[in-house]
């Protein structure tokens, strides 16, 4: 019988007894390529799963360990041997405890490959809010957008505490959403879904801050874009040099990282354990 994970999406099913586990937050309707796109090009001869968040609205009260435990339960139950843990953006933070736990029950620790890994902070959470609001130009006026962004900025300045900032921004988003989403004729349930999606995502970012990924990152490979506000590019040169074992940099926008053929080749090499550039 084929095992179906409860908390992960299956991205590749080739009947292998080895697994690549990809850590990401795929449930936002994100417009840039994700692990599904990478896998479509990579075509590995292994199973590939992607972590899925708890259903929107059910995350209240959960901590990072709850997220990680749910995903690990799937992995343990499957009996698959994990050869690599991948992480995208903040997914890279969760990749650390995932890899650490898996290493505790396997002979060999999984490889860890991080794509533009970043630790969440107030700036990151605020940026997501700011950009999301900017994207509502089809339903909000310029003044409304600017006002909402100004409120976001104030919230950012007021709250050093991440959960408080997240709560405030979620509530601001609910306010603007109520106005804008009603205008396009969305019914209350759908409006609620959109707000809950944002809330769920922000919660994911907040709990990620509970994790210290650095000890695992130090032995990981990072694959970096050149977008200045993403991944390791936000770090100072000194910190950047020591935070991962290997940093492969590409002249790519963050959004292109998981669909670029060059990246695919490097990942393929890294997964095979052969040095890149050997062919």
């Amino acid at each position: 019988m084929v095992f179906r994970p409860a908390r992960c999406n299956v991205l590749n099913d080739v009947g292998s007894n080895e697994l690549i586990l990809a850590s990401d937050f795929p449930a936002t309707g994100r417009t840039i390529p994700g692990f599904a796109d990478l896998v479509a090009k990579l075509r590995p001869h292994r199973q590939v799963w992607e972590t899925a968040p708890p259903p929107a609205g059910t995350e209240t009260g959960l901590h990072a360990t709850d997220y990680v435990d749910a995903w690990l339960a799937d992995v343990r139950e499957s009996g698959l041997r994990v050869t690599a843990v991948l992480g995208y953006c903040v997914g890279g933070v969760f990749a650390a405890p995932l890899a650490e736990h898996i290493a505790s029950w396997q002979d060999e620790p999984p490889a860890v490959i991080l794509f533009d890994p970043e630790r969440p902070d107030g700036a990151l959470i605020h940026r997501h809010y700011h950009e999301l609001v900017a994207g509502l130009s089809s339903v909000l006026s310029t003044d409304e957008i600017q006002a909402a962004q100004e409120r976001g900025r104030k919230a950012r300045e007021q709250h050093d505490d991440l959960p408080a900032l997240a709560a405030e921004l979620s509530s601001l988003f609910a306010d603007v959403g109520e106005v804008g989403f009603t205008r396009v004729g969305l019914d209350p349930a759908r409006r609620g879904e959109l707000v809950a999606t944002f809330r769920g995502f922000v919660h994911y970012l907040v709990v990620a801050a509970e994790v210290d990924p650095v000890p695992v990152w130090r032995r990981a490979t990072a694959v970096s874009s050149h977008s200045p506000l993403n991944g390791l590019n936000v770090l100072g040169a000194e910190e950047r040099d020591t935070i991962v074992a290997r940093d492969i940099r590409f002249a790519l926008d963050h959004g292109d990282l998981l669909r670029d053929d060059d990246v695919v080749r490097h990942v393929a090499d890294a997964l095979d354990g052969t040095p890149t550039g050997a062919r």
Partner: peptide, 17 residues
């Protein structure tokens, strides 16, 4: 892919509705 071809979450909500 809806989201890779210009769709965003608000449009997605309209679609499912």
């Amino acid at each position: 892919n809806f989201f890779a071809h210009g769709g965003h979450s608000l449009m997605g909500a309209i679609l499912v509705q």
